[in-house]
Design a protein around this nucleic acid. Structure first.
Lengths: 167, 167
DNA sequence: TAAAACTTTCAATAATTATTGAAAGTTAAA
DNA sequence: TTTAACTTTCAATAATTATTGAAAGTTTTA
């Protein structure tokens, strides 16, 4: 396979994965492109490579920066901004976990808590509702705790964990 | 809070969570509704409760059945189908893991493997590309392995794991 | 077999989300 | 300053995805 084909295939696949995870395609593709680019890229280069507009490139680069997985790089003597993706995969996973925790798990946990405060309604229904949402809340809390641990942990922790899980 | 409000809030929140995870809103909402309903519900009841059309209800119920997290129930003496969501949250998580593994992780792992077969192109670029996708592949494989273990495991395994992770 | 009760499909439409591109905004060099 | 290089914004448009509802399909009962 030629490099260009492999690269296109990877970018395409990373974009698709993004979509399945609620991240838009362009954002996934830009991230993939930056991952495989040794040198930081400018907005121009990203636009050119992925054939997308300036606005689109700009917005999604900002999105990636918000996620904390892409950063600005200033090249000496150059006026424009360049961007690069962190190359440490474990750190990437950690950062994504951190953000998803904050953006998705926290809100749902808050609702599951709030919703425990029912006082009014049919007793049997209430009992079942509370039981269900209560269990969901407990489970979510456990996952959240584990993720928090992961997010804060050092490299070894993760590998040890995986090893222990697998054996 | 009144039961109806709590229920609506939970359904809404579950739908939103679904969207963030690439599952459409109606599907998430139907799942939430079935989770909190003690009795299995008919298509009619779902349509009514969520104010959605028959086609929409039907398609998304099928979707949930495809995910393996909702099942048909036949009530004696009733001609129509009823649906219920499994009430075991751990089993739900397991089933979702199983499906996401199959639908998302497997395809991306396949691409990461395929893409290792580059022969043609700039040497330095190729080296970096292979390194990046290789690392991504390894990491993905580890996560996949851990998920597989989780999917196959029994109840205790999960709680022990969480306990070990947390301490 | 016919009719009733139900489920599925699918073309049309609506709603949502992504993308464009040009104008406005900003910063740095001349 | 003024101009040039660059970034951001945003209304318009395109593309995608979800939803509707009625017709077609299926199964059961009479």
């Amino acid at each position: 396979m030629h490099y260009e084909d492999a690269k296109a295939k990877f970018i395409q696949s990373w974009g698709t994965l993004g979509s399945a995870w609620g991240i838009n395609k362009a954002m996934g593709q830009i991230h993939a492109l930056l991952l495989v680019s040794e040198e930081p890229l400018s907005t121009e280069e990203i636009m050119e490579d992925l054939q997308i507009s300036r606005g689109n490139a700009n917005m999604n680069i900002r999105g990636l920066i918000d996620w904390g997985i892409v950063e600005k790089v200033y090249k000496p003597g150059e006026r424009k901004e360049f961007f690069k993706a962190g190359k440490d995969i474990l750190e990437l996973a950690r950062q994504v976990s951190r953000e998803r925790r904050r953006r998705e798990i926290e809100p749902v946990m808050r609702v599951l808590d709030e919703v425990q405060e029912i006082s009014d309604g049919d007793d049997k229904e209430i009992a079942h509702f509370k039981e269900m949402t209560g269990k969901l809340g407990e489970f979510t809390k456990q996952i959240d705790g584990a993720l928090d641990k992961f997010v804060r942990s050092d490299k070894n922790w993760f590998f040890n964990m995986i090893m222990r899980m697998m054996k």
